Amino acid sequence: MNATVLRAGWTRGTIELRQSFTNGADLVSHLLWPVLMLVALWFLRDREFGDSGLALGTLALPSILGMNIAMGMLSMSQHLTADREDGTLLRARAVPDGMRGYLVGKVVSVGGGLLADLAILMIPGLLIIDGLRPGGAGSWLTLGWVLVLGLVATLPAGAALGSLFSGARGQGLVQLLVLGVISISGVFYPITSLPGWVQGVAQVFPVYWLGLGTRSALLPDTAAAVEIDGSWRHLETVGVLGLWAVAGLVVAPLVLRRMARRESGSSVAERRERALQRVR
Rank of each mutant, 00 (worst) to 15 (best):
E85C: 10
L218K: 08
W209I: 07
S166R: 09
S29C: 00
L143H: 04
G72E: 04
V95G: 06
G24M: 15
L254T: 08
A116H: 02
A82I: 12
G144E: 10
V174S: 03
I228D: 02
A224G: 13
P34E: 01
G111C: 09
G138N: 00
M122E: 10
L219F: 06
R18W: 15
R233V: 08
L177G: 00
E48P: 12
T88I: 06
V95P: 00
L147F: 15
G125P: 07
G186F: 09
L32C: 03
T11D: 11
V204E: 03
G131Y: 11
G200I: 14
D221L: 03
L147G: 07
G167D: 06
R274T: 12
A55C: 08
P190Q: 06
T88E: 09
S185T: 03
R258N: 08
W197E: 00
A60K: 07
G144M: 03
G24V: 13
L219Q: 10
T222E: 15
V95K: 03
L254N: 07
M259C: 10
R262G: 15
V35T: 15
D83E: 15
M71D: 11
S267D: 12
V104A: 00
G211N: 06
S163N: 09
A157S: 05
M259G: 13
R278F: 12
D83C: 04
V28I: 14
S216G: 15
T222F: 06
V246G: 00
L103N: 07
T58R: 02
L249C: 02
T14K: 12
H30G: 03
M73F: 01
L6V: 04
V35S: 11
Q78K: 12
A25V: 14
Q175F: 02
G135M: 06
E48H: 07
L121M: 05
E263R: 06
M259S: 15
E263D: 09
E236N: 08
Q277N: 12
Q277S: 14
